[in-house]
Simulated assay, not measured.
Amino acid sequence: MRATIEVAGLRKRFGHTMALDGMSFTVTPGQVTGFVGPNGAGKSTTMRVILGLDAADEGSALVGGRPYTGLRDPLRHVGALLDASALQPSRTARNHLLWLAHSQGLGAGRVDEVIEQVGLGSAAQRKAGGFSLGMRQRLGIAAALLGDPPVLMLDEPSNGLDPEGIIWMRGFLRSLAAEGRAVLVSSHLMSELEDTADHLVVVGRGRVVADTSVAGLLATASGGRVSLRTSAPSEAMAALTQAGATVTGAGTGTGTGTGRDALTVTGLTGEHIVALLNRYAVPFSEVSAHRATLEEAYLELTRDAVEFRAAGQEATR
């Protein structure tokens, strides 16, 4: 069964604080959707509203066309991991999953399947209270998978994982989406989402700032910039600006070049830049199209939505 998450016009106030201010987006099957934003942007509140843990003042949040509270055997419809520490520490990993499975009419066989699926086979009989954060994350994901749901919601699933675990998580999330599931992942690790997510919902101050594909966002953020390395930056700048380009970086008084020989050029293609430098005999060692990182794109989108900033720290531009 394929299902979507549909969030429409959510508003939620806690006292004088507006946590959600018209939050609207859709998580579609067959892809990993990254859910990102600064602290206080409304991510956790949105996920709690979707799961019926908080009630919205206005708007709706539906899973497969129905509110979560109206789902029978909800683990068969949506699996969620919001807090990896939400477990009884004296229970073994297997027993923790068994009582969840029994509440949904699922058997012990399914428990053993998900334990192996998340790589906890050798730790199944250990008490969960002694688990590392990374192991608790795996146990929480196993719980989310118990009902083989078409929708998954995971909050910071890579938190606490070692490098091997992070690589596993990356491939695991993509495999779940490839099976036709709708996967919503909240994370602060932009480098992980860049390699994992197909789509991004960027939020700030309780609203959606951007709802776009990762590829589209990176293309926009790259902005047609070309990176140039040259041992003669002044000569290169003169030739390129005369041709109508804008040049920033070392020696220009603007930008943040990565070295004395680094320039960033906009307004000309890489091929045109190479031709001009050859024409004026300006030496260069590299001309390459700039590809923005997801972190750069995210910081640009959310620079005005950061609620908490240390004294003296300016918004990223």
Rank of each mutant, 00 (worst) to 15 (best):
T254D: 09
S285L: 05
A281M: 01
V274K: 03
L263P: 11
S222N: 06
A215V: 14
D198I: 10
G259L: 03
N278I: 02
T254A: 10
V265K: 04
R225Q: 13
T248D: 13
L299P: 09
L218F: 05
T196S: 05
I273A: 11
V202W: 15
A292E: 04
L276I: 08
Y298S: 06
D195H: 10
R225C: 01
A197T: 11
R225D: 03
L228C: 06
R279S: 05
T266A: 15
T196A: 01
G259M: 04
A281K: 01
A289D: 09
N278V: 02
A215F: 05
A250I: 02
G257S: 12
G216R: 02
A262D: 15
T258A: 15
Q242V: 11
L218V: 00
G270Q: 15
E286A: 03
A210C: 08
L218C: 02
G259I: 07
V208W: 00
T302Y: 09
T258K: 14
T246S: 14
G216I: 06
S234H: 14
S288I: 03
R303A: 08
T264Y: 00
S234D: 15
G224A: 06
L218R: 07
A292H: 02
N278K: 03
A243C: 08
G267R: 15
V247L: 12
A281Y: 12
R279I: 01
G244F: 00
G223A: 13
A197M: 02
L268Y: 04
A221E: 13
E286Q: 14
E295N: 10
H199E: 07
E235C: 09
L268C: 03
V287G: 09
T264F: 01
A289F: 07
L277I: 05
L301A: 04
H290R: 01
M237K: 13
A219L: 15
Y298M: 03
H272K: 12
A219N: 07
A245Q: 10
D195M: 15
S285F: 02
A262R: 03
E286F: 01
T230C: 06
A275G: 13
P233R: 07
H290M: 00
S231W: 01
D304N: 10
G259F: 00
V203N: 04
A243H: 10
G216V: 07
L301C: 08
T246H: 07
V214A: 06
G267Q: 09
T266M: 06
G251N: 15
T266R: 14
T258W: 09
S285W: 04
T248Y: 00
D198S: 10
S213V: 08
T258G: 02
G216D: 08
G267L: 14
G257Y: 14
Q242C: 02
E235F: 14
A239C: 13
T196G: 08
T302S: 06
A210Y: 04
D211Q: 04
R279L: 05
L263E: 13
A232H: 08
T254M: 04
V208Y: 06
G253T: 04
Y298Q: 06
E271A: 14
P283H: 08
L294H: 09
L200C: 05
T196K: 00
A243V: 03
V265G: 04
S222P: 12
L301D: 09
T241Y: 03
A281R: 11
T252L: 12
